[in-house]
């Protein structure tokens, strides 16, 4: 495996991660979302491993395995359980229709590219060009949180943002210190449990996981 080939492979993985971020925006079924999220995690894990191999930073292998365990197996499993337990298989209602969301997404990608262009000029890491993709993944995750109504999609958007952050860390600096990564992983796990508990309560209170229901919680008038 040559260095440039690794870079190419990483670019391909970055492109696929970007695609999965868009797929998250486009997907209507909750289970589909969970699957795509797992795929995104897998791609992320692969990309981390590739970067780890190419850069010689071997702690990235651990990150890669951690990602694999957390984002490909554990979190999707928790979400899967949740979806089954709460019996939510309906289509997700979007606040903004899908094509418009896609257009907004493209605008955000271009915006990210525009933002990271100066960094691209300065950095000499082989992963520098994927920074734009990482930033775009964060933005798209946020866009997903903005445009979807269902609470589970909010979480998936949040987790997708985290994926983007992780990717940004690997592509900007070849990863965060191990301690930080472990901490973040633990945080995510706890967040997932807390979300699960919250969903359960929201579901029993409102008999729905539509977050628009929560508008009732605001002040009167």
């Amino acid at each position: 495996m040559t260095h440039t080939f690794a870079a190419q492979l990483n670019s391909l993985l970055a492109a696929l991660i970007l695609l999965s971020a868009f797929a998250l925006l486009a997907q209507r079924k909750i289970m589909g979302l969970v699957h795509i999220f797992a795929w995104q995690g897998l791609l992320l894990s692969l990309s981390t491993a590739v970067i780890g191999y190419a850069s010689g930073e071997h702690h990235l292998y651990i990150s890669s395995l951690l990602t694999l365990g957390m984002k490909v197996i554990l979190l999707p499993y928790i979400l899967y359980k949740l979806v089954h337990k709460l019996k939510i298989h309906r289509d997700i209602e979007a606040v903004v229709n899908v094509p418009t969301t896609m257009l907004l997404g493209i605008i955000l990608v271009v915006f990210s590219y525009h933002l990271t262009a100066p960094i691209r000029e300065l950095s000499n890491l082989m992963t520098r060009s994927t920074l734009a993709v990482a930033l775009a993944t964060i933005m798209l995750g946020m866009l997903m949180m903005v445009t979807r109504r269902h609470a589970v999609t909010q979480i998936l958007g949040f987790l997708a943002m985290e994926n983007g952050l992780f990717f940004a860390a690997t592509s900007a600096t070849y990863g965060m210190p191990m301690v930080v990564e472990l901490g973040v992983a633990l945080d995510l796990l706890i967040a997932a449990f807390i979300f699960g508990i919250f969903f359960f309560h929201i579901n029993t209170t409102f008999e729905s996981l539509d977050v628009e229901q929560m508008a009732k919680l605001k002040e009167t008038d």
Partner: peptide, 11 residues
């Protein structure tokens, strides 16, 4: 479009 963007961003 993503293809075109990927062309500019990643290649």
């Amino acid at each position: 479009t993503l293809g075109m963007i990927a062309f500019f961003i990643l290649e």
